[in-house]
Design a protein around this nucleic acid. Structure first.
Lengths: 346, 346
DNA sequence: AGGCATCACTGAAAGGTTTCACTGATACGC
DNA sequence: GCGTATCAGTGAAACCTTTCAGTGATGCCT
């Protein structure tokens, strides 16, 4: 059994008794060229019989477009990232675009190399999810120079240089903390995700704004934590520090639901009753938060992905759209973990 | 500003004063061809100055290999799928392979079209995650005919026709249910995920085996549920049916942790105390399960992804390996939700 | 001095498609 | 019967790389 070459357009052309050009016109469905139905049928049949499959590489090479977008992200592990991807996929699949994945494994060098990889593959545009740090500025500007459209999700550090899709985290955090203050809390600590990512910064900002608006002087030792991706032991250590303060907090605002869930565990292990002795609130409205009855702020990562993808695909058509930052609204979801008697829907 | 063409090898060649062939040899790092260091330097510099970026499409076209694998999955929403992806990504990124994503949105037609799409892109191989149904048999056999390596994750329906990576779900379910029986339960119901996916079938099988081994006659009305992806309302309805039986169950085995979590909610809403009145166990050892203190069986989706990717990449080298089904061991994790006093590690 | 090996390259084909500029042939109007 | 449209295609270049088969020019051996 000789491993035979895959059939090409030329093979189809020969079998159908026409030129390769005609096959191309028919198979790529160009309707501005007149080919009678009979000929089309012959070509379709020949293609069918040979098991012909168009070669996207050759097509991309000559067209200069690949109908492929690149998606860059630090890792594909949390459900937040997964849901953003799901939204992107949904839109891209519906519009017949392909998705080439690139992860940076939380490593700036690799991130830059992955961007290079995507460009080598001649993707038509790039969506980057929650990418961080000033180091990323280099490739963000590179893409701009090269004219490769970029949409950044959940990060607005490069607002003005690329489209971005974020949620209103300052407001969300503020709503959450104001809710705690209304419940009578004054010593509210923040399990933070650091300052590298804008989402983390914004939530901290909203926290501080809420305190200040109520005349509560924020204390330096009330804020701990440095990333959304701290290993569990680190989270536990930080939470213990916060709970062991000389004047212990009565409420804790975690930068996302996962951190809040972990904080809940630690508190329980320390014999602290929730919400009686400690109110805990999270951020993001994840499944974990729902199951733990966590008061939180609603976020819709799938929608963020959809919007990002739609924006990118639109930009591939209309090149000259002004860059913008799309901010999704947030909404407070009150559940048991904060000890509130009020309940919102959902 | 004229939109100028991207620099090609020929441009680099001209600038460095050598032939295109030489540039190719130097830039693709072939060490079997002798080119003095001075020439290499000149070429690297020329490439640098021009901002040359190799074109993977052209390379793939001539090489007949793309260093790209396709990943097919129903959707990218659950963290189970995300973690499998993460494992795949990790291995592929490390070995300098790219990942082209294709989702079928739980639709058999689209699934077949996505496979076709991957083949048009000339991927070197395909990993398919939790793909189901006899309809998939068509493209599984197609890939075999075309000689495109395939690894199937979390599904062994096509064992023998393609490599697969699964966990020992029959055993896992059996351990779980035997544990319940040891705790004294006799009326154990199963919130099932139907019969379409092998994982769901296997867990049901393990459940039945455990009952039979203890001389408990399984009743038809003890098994309800038809998919891992039931909408929440459907899950609730099914759980209520199970809990409302004339002789109510004392234990419930859900086909995965998410279903178990939902069942827990429903039970609580019905005023049923867990584990006092109803023991609940799940499957998969997910974050949700951990936070709910759910007794479960450990699964490592990231590892499954890694193993699948390693298997596929290896098969791309050694074409003639026999097909095999890799079965990962499972491990019982006892927590509070089953009312057991024994505790295992983790 | 002649033969051979190695060095440092080069030319051209091949890979599969799209697209522009054509070309015969038929039909139609007058 | 002639000019012009439309029809139904075709030929060849272009896209960018890899790779095979060479080719002069040295260096070395005997």
């Amino acid at each position: 059994m000789t491993t035979r070459r895959k059939p090409s357009m030329l093979d189809v052309a020969k079998r159908a008794g026409v030129s390769q050009t005609t096959v191309s016109y028919v198979l790529s469905g160009r309707k501005d060229v007149v080919i009678p139905e009979a000929t089309r049928k012959r070509i379709w049949q020949a293609a069918q019989e040979l098991g012909y499959r168009p070669n996207s590489l050759a097509r991309g090479l000559v067209r200069g477009k690949t109908q492929t977008i690149g998606v860059l992200m630090p890792r594909m592990d949390s459900s937040f990232h997964a849901l953003i991807m799901d939204g992107i996929q949904e839109v891209c699949t519906a519009q017949d675009y392909r998705v080439l994945l690139a992860d940076s494994r939380h490593n700036a060098d690799l991130e830059a190399r992955q961007v290079e990889m995507l460009l080598e593959h001649r993707v038509d545009g790039i969506i980057s999810i929650a990418v961080a740090g000033e180091a990323s500025g280099d490739w963000v500007r590179l893409l701009k120079r090269e004219g490769v459209p970029l949409v950044i999700v959940d990060e607005h550090t490069f607002e003005g240089e690329a489209d971005c899709v974020i949620s209103d985290d300052v407001l969300g955090a503020r709503l959450l903390v104001e809710h705690l203050i209304q419940l009578g809390h004054r010593r509210i600590v923040h399990l933070s995700a650091g300052t590298e990512m804008s989402a983390a910064r914004d939530r901290r900002t909203g926290y501080l704004l809420a305190l200040q608006a109520s005349g509560i002087e924020p204390r330096e030792e009330w804020i701990r934590g440095d990333s959304f991706f701290m290993p569990v032991e680190r989270i536990r250590q930080v939470v213990e520090e916060l709970l062991d303060l000389p004047e212990p907090p009565t409420a804790l605002f975690a930068a996302n639901d996962d951190l809040a869930a972990e904080a809940t565990h630690v508190a329980r292990e320390l014999g602290i009753a929730i919400p009686a002795q400690l109110a805990v609130v999270g951020y993001g409205n994840t499944e974990v938060g729902r199951h733990l009855q966590l008061t939180t702020v609603h976020q819709d990562p799938r929608l963020m992905g959809q919007i990002a993808a739609r924006r990118l695909l639109r930009r591939l058509q209309e090149t000259e759209m002004p860059v913008k930052c799309i901010v999704l609204p947030t909404r407070l979801i009150v559940r048991e973990s904060c000890g509130s008697s009020l309940k919102t829907q959902n």
